[in-house]
Design a binder for these strands. Structure first.
Lengths: 208, 208
DNA sequence: GGGGGTAGCGTACATTCGTACACACAAGGT
DNA sequence: ACCTTGTGTGTACGAATGTACGCTACCCCC
């Protein structure tokens, strides 16, 4: 089909199904770029980085295929931006939780809650987290993302614990969370609150 | 090029460069299947699950493309087998290390060594581990692999520690290892040997 | 209010993918 | 020695992908 066909009176043959009937002319959608990044995360969560293509993201974001190469250098840049957004959202949430408690006791409870409940609730975040880790594992230049995330967690924990303890608790959250997700029913149940308290007691140090 | 060309006297037009000059006729390569699985791990390590294709694996294993679909149902089966092999090799190595030490003191040293040195040495294993985690995160039916791996680690640790401590040490190895790999130079250096010893002291219990 | 400039899009194309299938060749019974 | 059998392979094909590129329609300045 030569391009002259469209220059005639054909109203608009859109490939993507338009959800609303609004005509939505051009240049009136300034957060298109943002929507694409969000849609990219959805696609990654569903199909994995392996199955993430320009076309799938375009459909998910309800934008034309051409927007993909227009707004982004390529899949790599898009993935980097998407993971950047994801990791920032995750560490923001963690910081908020830690900022919401005041006493050390409450902080310990919060850590316990994170370990016990966090991963069970949301499979999407489990998947995205590991997609991000894998992405960073393969390309050292993107480890800034994971480094920032981990640094932010430690910083948040340091509001309540000394640096060494914060580092240890952070690692414990990581390890216990992963093992809980991938091996939900180990033979030996762990008394998470007690463990967290005892880890925090290893470095018998004061905290703000 | 019609197929009749090969039926004439052409010696063998192989697409992949044959390393040795041995003619290697058919039916004389019984570990072809194994080699393909190993090659699949190499390809995954280099290009990620995302970039792993029948063709790349075939080239890496130096087998014809047709062998891929002949020996395996599809990429999924191949990946499953490859990750199965990888996870078994990893947990075997862990078990061996733990079986090699006799006293609890030596066990603590071994754990310390694993946390401190393991990940730095080999980037390939870091990548493959996380590719496996991601694979398992997306498809719960393949979490058997991770479950078995983690169960094996715990079992190995239980040769020297009580179950609760084993579980905790296992999680600590996971968390510290990951954070060390993704954030190699945190502000606060951790005294790994001391930490390991203190974690092991949390459950003041006896062990064989 | 109208014309130029450019942001944004639709589409075609070369490439690469998984898979199907006809066919060649080694092995073993006779 | 031959024929039969079924394992293993080369190749062709449809589907799907990333990217280039020309054209449309909005915005801004005069």
């Amino acid at each position: 089909m030569p391009s002259s066909t469209r220059s005639s009176g054909a109203p608009r043959t859109s490939a993507a199904p338009r959800a609303s009937a609004a005509p939505r002319t051009r240049r009136t959608d300034p957060d298109r770029r943002d929507r694409i990044i969000d849609a990219c995360l959805d696609v990654v969560a569903e199909h994995g980085v392996a199955g993430t293509t320009h076309r799938k993201v375009a459909v998910a974001a309800d934008v034309p295929l051409g927007s993909m190469t227009y707004h982004f250098e390529g899949m790599d840049e898009l993935l980097r931006l998407a993971f950047e957004r994801f990791s920032q959202a995750m560490s923001q949430r963690f910081e908020d939780r830690m900022a919401a408690v005041t006493t050390r006791e409450e902080a310990l409870d919060a850590v316990t809650a994170i370990i016990s409940d966090d991963v069970f609730t949301d499979d999407r975040e489990l998947v995205l987290t590991h997609e991000l880790y894998t992405f960073a594992a393969r390309r050292p230049e993107y480890r800034t993302l994971t480094r920032n995330w981990m640094a932010a967690s430690r910083r948040a924990l340091e509001r309540h614990f000394d640096p060494a303890t914060a580092r240890l608790i952070d690692a414990a959250i990581e390890g216990l969370t992963i093992h809980q997700a991938f091996d939900p029913a180990p033979r030996t149940q762990l008394d998470v609150p007690a463990v967290v308290r005892q880890i925090a007691a290893i470095h018998a140090s004061d905290a703000p």
